[in-house]
Simulated scan of single mutants.
Amino acid sequence: MRRLARSGVRAAQALALALGALVLAGCASGTARPKPAELPPSVDLIGVRQVWQLRAAPVGFPLQVHVQGSQVLLAGDDGSLVTLDAASGRELGRASVGAPLSAGVGNDGRVSAVVTRANEVVALEGGQVLWRRPLPTQSYTAPLVAGGRVFVLGADRSLTALDGGSGARLWHLERPAEPLVLRQAGVLLPVGNTLVAGLAGRLVGIDPDNGSVRWEAPVAAARGTNDVERLVDLVGGAYRAGTLVCARAFQAALGCVETRDGRLLWTRAANGATGIAGDGERLYGAEADGQVLAWRADTGDRAWSTERLRWRQLTGPLVLGRSVVVGDSTGLVHLLSRADGTALGRMSTDGSGIAATPVQAGNTLVVVTRAGNVFGFRPE
Rank of each mutant, 00 (worst) to 15 (best):
R6L: 15
R10F: 02
L17E: 14
G30E: 08
T31G: 10
E38H: 04
I46F: 00
V48D: 00
R49I: 09
R55N: 06
A56L: 02
A57D: 15
P58H: 10
P58S: 12
V65K: 01
Q71Y: 02
D77F: 06
T83N: 07
A86S: 14
G93F: 12
G93V: 13
S102M: 05
G106H: 05
S112V: 02
R117N: 07
A118K: 13
V122Q: 09
L124C: 08
G127N: 12
V129H: 11
S139G: 10
V150Y: 03
V150L: 10
D156E: 15
T160W: 04
G167A: 04
A168S: 15
L180S: 10
G192M: 09
T194K: 13
A200H: 12
A217W: 01
G224C: 11
D227P: 09
L231D: 04
Y239R: 06
A249M: 05
A249I: 07
E258R: 13
W266L: 05
A269F: 04
A277C: 07
G278S: 13
E281R: 15
L293S: 04
D298F: 06
R308H: 03
P317C: 10
V319Y: 06
R322E: 14
V326C: 02
D328S: 00
H334T: 00
A339T: 10
S348L: 14
A361S: 14
G362E: 13
V367R: 03
T369A: 02
G372V: 06
N373T: 05
